[in-house]
Design a protein around this nucleic acid. Structure first.
Lengths: 219, 219
DNA sequence: CCCCCTATGTGACCACGTCACATGCCTTTC
DNA sequence: GAAAGGCATGTGACGTGGTCACATAGGGGG
C-alpha cells in the first residue's frame, strides 16, 4: 500500500491539500515504540495511516490510564493541542501494533488550516471526537464502579469467540485502576459464572450478566 | 457597556468577523440560570461577554463534578462540540453570576469559520485550552488524593484575605467528591492548624502547609 | 533441570463514597 | 420573640477501591 492510497482514504480532503500531503513521506514505527512522552515538545501534526496507537496519561506512582486509542485515518489530538496551545505533551503514546504515520510540520499544518476547508473539517472533527470521548472518560472514571468498567471493557474488546487476550495489568491500565483490583473482580465474576479466566485470557461465558453489570452501576 | 465594546475585547478578531458579530444581540442571563442541560440540542456557538458560567458533569446519583469554568471572552466548548460533532449536550451549564453572552447561530458560525482566520484562531484556541484543562482534570481525579485537591481548591479560590466563601457541598462538587468527605477533611486540616472553618467560610491559616499537601500527593 | 521473568493470588490496611441520622444555625411567619 | 422549616454541618457504620508486601505459578531459555 502506498501512502498516496491512504491520503485518498482521508475523508473530505480537497485536491490541493492532498497534493501537499503527498509530498510528505510516511514514517514506519515498530510495535511497542513510544511516539512521544510527557514534557517533549510538539514537532508537528500527526496523522495515522495504519496500525494502532494508544495514548496514556501517566500517574506519579507508575499507574496509568488510557486516554484514547488512535485508529487509522485519525490524528493524534495531543499534537494539535501542542500546536495550537503551545504546550508540551502531557501524555505518552505507544504503538500497540506496527504503525505507519505522517508528521505534518508546523508551518504546513497552519498553511493547510488556512487554505483547505477539508483539512479544517478533518482537524476540527477529530478534535471534537476526542473531546467527546474524554468527557465520556471523566464520566466513567468518576461515576462508574470498577466492576462496571471492567465488564464493559471485556464486552467490547473480546472477539466474536468471546475471548479477550489481555493481561490483568493491561486491563488495569485500560480502565484506570490497579492490577490487584482486577484480579479480585475477575475472581468474583468467575465465581458468579459470567466469565472464565486463565493466564492472559478472559472468556465471556454469560454476556447477558455482563451487560447487566455495565448498566447496573452506570445509570 | 455596549456589546460592541465587548467584541473589541475578543483578541485577534478581524474586521469582517467583528462586523458580523456586531449584528447579533447579546443575551442577559440571571444568576442561577441553567444555560443548557444534558440531552438538549445545540443551537449555536456561545461566547461569554461578562459573568461566570460553570459547566458540570452530572452523575446518576446526583453527584456532579465541575468540568470547567467559562470566563468572559471565552466560549463554551460544549457548543462547539455539538456543532462540529453533531452530538447533544452531555453536561450542564449554570450561571454562577448574572451573565451576558452571544449565541452565534449555526450557519453564521460555519461562515465565520471559513472566512475569518481570526475567528478560527479564537475557536481553535478555546478548544485547545479546554482540552488541556480536561486532561488536567482527569489527571487530578485519578491520581490526586481528595485532600490534595481540596487544598488546591482552597488556595486558588480564596481571596487575598485568605477567605473562601463556599459551602461544603459546593466544594464537594468542585473537586468531584462527596460532602461528608469534605466535612471530615476540613476538620482534619483545622485540627492541624492549616485552616479555620465555620458555616459557609473557610479561612487559610497556614498557606505553606496547604501548598505542601497539594504537592505531597500530586507528584 | 534450574533460573528468571512475567502473570497472578492474597491479606492487611487506609482512603473514599454512601447511607442514615443527629445537630445547629438562620430566616420566615405568626 | 417563639415556633417552624430549611439549609449547612457533624458523625458512625459499612462497603468498595488503591497500595504494599509478599507468595505462587507458568513458561521459556540456558
Amino acid at each position: 500500500m502506498s501512502w498516496t492510497e491512504h491520503t485518498d482514504q482521508i475523508a473530505g480532503l480537497d485536491a490541493p491539500a492532498r497534493a501537499l500531503l503527498d509530498t510528505l513521506s510516511p514514517m514506519e514505527v515498530p510495535e511497542g515504540a513510544v511516539l512521544f512522552c510527557p514534557g517533549e515538545a510538539v514537532k508537528g501534526y500527526v496523522v495515522m495511516l495504519s496500525g494502532q496507537v494508544d495514548v496514556n496519561l501517566i500517574g506519579p506512582n507508575g499507574r496509568d490510564i488510557l486516554l484514547y486509542r488512535v485508529a487509522p485515518g485519525q490524528s493524534c489530538i495531543q499534537s494539535t493541542l501542542g500546536l495550537l496551545g503551545g504546550d508540551d505533551y502531557t501524555a505518552e503514546a505507544t504503538a500497540e501494533t506496527p504503525a505507519r504515520l505522517v508528521l505534518i510540520p508546523r508551518d504546513v499544518f497552519f498553511a493547510l488550516l488556512d487554505s483547505s476547508p477539508g483539512f479544517r473539517r478533518l482537524v476540527f472533527g477529530a478534535f471534537a471526537e476526542r473531546m467527546q470521548s474524554m468527557m465520556q472518560l471523566i464520566e466513567n472514571v468518576s461515576f462508574m464502579s470498577v466492576e462496571a468498567r471492567l465488564a464493559a471493557l471485556i464486552l467490547d474488546r473480546s472477539g466474536p469467540d468471546g475471548c479477550l487476550h489481555m493481561t490483568q495489568a493491561e486491563m488495569a491500565t485500560a480502565i484506570g485502576t490497579a492490577r490487584e483490583v482486577i484480579s479480585r473482580r475477575l475472581d468474583k465474576m468467575a465465581h458468579a459464572g459470567s466469565v472464565a479466566h486463565e493466564r492472559g485470557v478472559v472468556t465471556v461465558l454469560d454476556r447477558k450478566a455482563l451487560n447487566k453489570i455495565v448498566s447496573g452501576t452506570a445509570f
